[in-house]
Simulated scan of single mutants.
Amino acid sequence: MKKTLLIALLGVSVGANTAMANSNVDPETDRQQLVDFFKAKSPKIAFDDYKDGGYIYSEDKRAQWEAVEEFPPYLDSVDAGEELYNADKAVYEKCFGDDPANVRQHYPYFDEKTQQVVTLEWAINICRENAGLKPYKYKKGDMAKVSAYLAYQARGEKVNVKIDSEGAKAAFNKGRDIYLRPTGQLGLSCAKCHTYNSGRYARADLLSPNLGHTTHFPVFRAKWQELGTLHRRYGGCHKNMRAKPFKAQSEEYRNLEFFQAYMSNHLEINGPGYRQ
């Protein structure tokens, strides 16, 4: 069963060394096949637990993570994000409404007017620039803090990305292609680590599953000693594969986030998070 689901997930024959270009799969069928694949791979893990990333695979690692989360190192940044948000509150309310707890769960989405995926961080800067404010840098700093504040406010809400047009479906498939395509000098893909080998160790790190990847960002990484955004992590992963990363909030990374967020539909938002 695992082998059958894996073939369905990839859309290529076993042993193929290239990702499919211009794939045109049905998003909901693809999502359900991924869920079924992980159920077959790890039948004792409940679907709702995938929001916790790689810590679901190790009792010891999970215990260490839960201990850190009792007094998480990102709380000061969440408070700083609230201050930044309130400093420009009138601007943000024109863009996002008057309830900061009702923002994060609506991103990413596909904008039918521009025919592009809009992520939360991209929307924050669009909002700022339209109001004549200086945009934030996308990988860390004030952007990560404001994003963390909005994520913290939305904790417990469910990921609910909608694909109800051909444009949205095309964006999903473009993100899917990036996820599946081998790249860099090592010839690795996102799927190689986070689908086939999730739960295994890469050096001292547990490889996290694709399900739930977007639920807990931005994250405070021990390696960074600060908050970082999802697109910062994308760039780091590509560098690890010895590939040239795309720019943060590029169309490629926004499509990748759209794909991953859709695949994590129905999981709880629990950002910001702590990661090793």
Rank of each mutant, 00 (worst) to 15 (best):
T4V: 08
V12T: 13
V12C: 03
D30G: 09
F38G: 02
K39Y: 09
I45M: 02
Y55L: 05
A63G: 01
A67M: 01
E70Y: 04
D76N: 15
N86H: 12
A87P: 05
D88R: 07
E93I: 10
D99M: 05
P100H: 03
D111I: 01
E112I: 02
E112V: 02
R128G: 05
L133G: 00
L133E: 03
Y136N: 12
Y138S: 06
K139H: 12
M143L: 13
A144L: 13
V146E: 01
A148K: 00
L150S: 06
D164N: 15
S165K: 09
S165T: 15
E166W: 02
E166L: 04
R176V: 09
D177C: 04
I178A: 07
G184V: 04
L186I: 08
L186Q: 11
L188Q: 14
A191N: 00
A191I: 00
R200Y: 14
Y201T: 04
A202E: 14
S208G: 11
H213V: 14
H216M: 14
F220N: 08
A222P: 03
K223Y: 07
L230W: 10
R232H: 15
R233V: 13
G235D: 06
N240Y: 13
P245G: 04
F246H: 10
K247V: 10
E257D: 00
Y262Q: 01
M263L: 13
H266D: 15
I269F: 11
G273K: 02
Y274A: 05
